[in-house]
Amino acid sequence: MTIAVEIVLLILLLVTAAGAILVKDLMSAILLLGTYSFFLSLVWAWLGAVDVAFVEAVVGAGLATVLFLVTLFGTAPKDSRLRRPPPPIAALFALPLLGILLLYAANDLPEFGDPNSPASSHISPIYLENSFQDSHTPNVVTSVLMDYRSLDTMVETVVIFTAGIACALLLRRKAS
């Protein structure tokens, strides 16, 4: 059961990702990319990372799709067809090599849900045990993001703010 659902989700991910790259129409590519994000959020939810799934569904499938669509409508209609040059020879060799290297490295990753893996044995138990007493916050993810790692989150917020400022500086012009 578990394996079947995972395989179906992964196949859907691969199909939508390949479709977003291969399809000729930019509008279809954007919608396929939104679908890809939605399936990715289903994968996160299936793996138990509900917060990540929520962010992926809202930002990846919702906001990013809207931003892409608004950008597409702001560009000239002649841009909406892709012209695809053949890939360079170096990429044809280097990218499969990179993929093989990544698969080789993935062999050494700990099993999913392994209680002895470094990620779940280093500092996570302290967070899990102390979160509710420390901050009256049952959701440990929120407690880690906003309390234990608050400075990191503040700098992330600065990054988002900077992105908005950069977009405004680059794109907002006076009508000539």
């Binding site: 901050s135 977009c167 405004a168």
Partner: peptide, 30 residues
């Protein structure tokens, strides 16, 4: 600490919401 989490979350939410609207306006309406 719970109150601090609520306050900073409101800050993050305001920042993200205004940035999202600002980017859409930047892209569409010079």
């Amino acid at each position: 600490r719970s109150l601090g989490i609520v306050l900073t979350q409101i800050g993050v939410a305001l920042d993200v919401a205004v940035t999202a609207i600002s980017i859409v306006f930047s892209l569409s309406a010079e």
